[in-house]
Nucleic acid binder design. Structure first.
Lengths: 187, 187
DNA sequence: GTCTATATGCGGATAGAC
DNA sequence: GTCTATCCGCATATAGAC
């Protein structure tokens, strides 16, 4: 072979991830990734069909990492503490990997195959919630996810930069769980 | 004057808003707006300093509209029902004006003057919450805002397209308020 | 598998005439 | 106040040589 491989899909993915972290989604361009790998832009097309495929790769990988971190956090505790740990881990991931988090929440990027990771995330959260809030686990899980996602969004939008309280997510999660549980008992 | 004014800031804003609604933020370009007004791109610079200024105008106008709708919704009810009405109005606005909502939540676009509308939104929500949940109004308001913002985000990301429940926001809001209130009583 | 070269497109913004 | 003309930069993606 006159041209031995100078790169592979993983190297490309890693370089793209660096750019994503450093400059946000807009920073991930074919040209930019190629430059970082000291290749011409064209070389990347052997490994990724087009620009969107590269973004989708980052996104689905990020979703997998998120799930992994949530699972790890859940293992360390039991009962309600497990939910709190999941919530903390969720927020921590989103804060540490802001651009990646925003990307992985763009479900439309995913191929049908990659989309399955979303289903896995949902099942995981639902099952964990079911332990502490059996009667209406789905409704609780949806609200919990929405709450966490929203708090991440407010944080990333810098809504609470000054003069506004940042009380963390713990009180909200507690209230959500307590509120749903007391409703369940009332009915 | 050899060149009488063929447009003004408001016309430009309206045209930009149409493009935003039709094609999302990416659809709002100097060239695109000009084309819709049958002007050359250059004409717009008499009214808006640059592209970002135009986007910021849309964003701050949108924030004002949102506040207005929330205020209107709150007036129709009292007590907890008022909070539910606000929540419904918030969600309705975000669903009806998806791209505008995403834009107005990008606080960094705003000039210091425009940013005040954000403060007004926050004060409004906080005051409304204070009526039903006085002891820790700020924490409740933050959580409520986060929850609503997050549910909007999940909806817009199409996370619940199929096989997943869309229970609406009402149960979550109820749980949040109940949960915080019972915590308050316990302490 | 990687290269050079290039087609093609989008977009923001400015200079200067009228 | 609006125009024409233009510069500039960014990007995706393809064709074909080696």
């Amino acid at each position: 072979m006159p041209y031995p491989a100078q790169t592979d899909a993983e190297q490309i993915r890693n370089a793209a991830l660096e750019l994503l972290t450093a400059s946000g989604e807009g920073g991930v361009t074919i040209r930019g990734v190629a430059k970082q790998l000291r290749l011409t832009p064209n070389a990347l097309y052997r490994y990724y069909r087009d620009h969107d495929a590269l973004l989708a790769e980052l996104a689905s990988m990020g979703a997998g990492q998120l799930l992994q971190q949530l699972e790890a956090a859940a293992k360390t505790k039991s009962g309600r503490e497990s939910i709190y740990a999941i919530a903390d881990a969720y927020l921590a991931f989103a804060v540490e990997h802001g651009a990646l988090y925003r990307l992985l929440m763009r479900k439309h990027l995913f191929t049908p195959e990659q989309e399955q990771i979303f289903g896995a995330l949902w099942v995981f959260v639902k099952n964990e919630v079911a332990v502490v809030s059996p009667p209406q686990a789905e409704a609780v899980a949806v609200s919990l996810w929405g709450f966490l996602h929203g708090m991440v969004g407010l944080e990333q939008a810098d809504v609470f930069h000054e003069g506004k309280p940042n009380v963390g997510v713990r009180p909200g999660v507690e209230a959500l769980l307590s509120g749903f549980n007391s409703q369940g008992q009332l009915r």
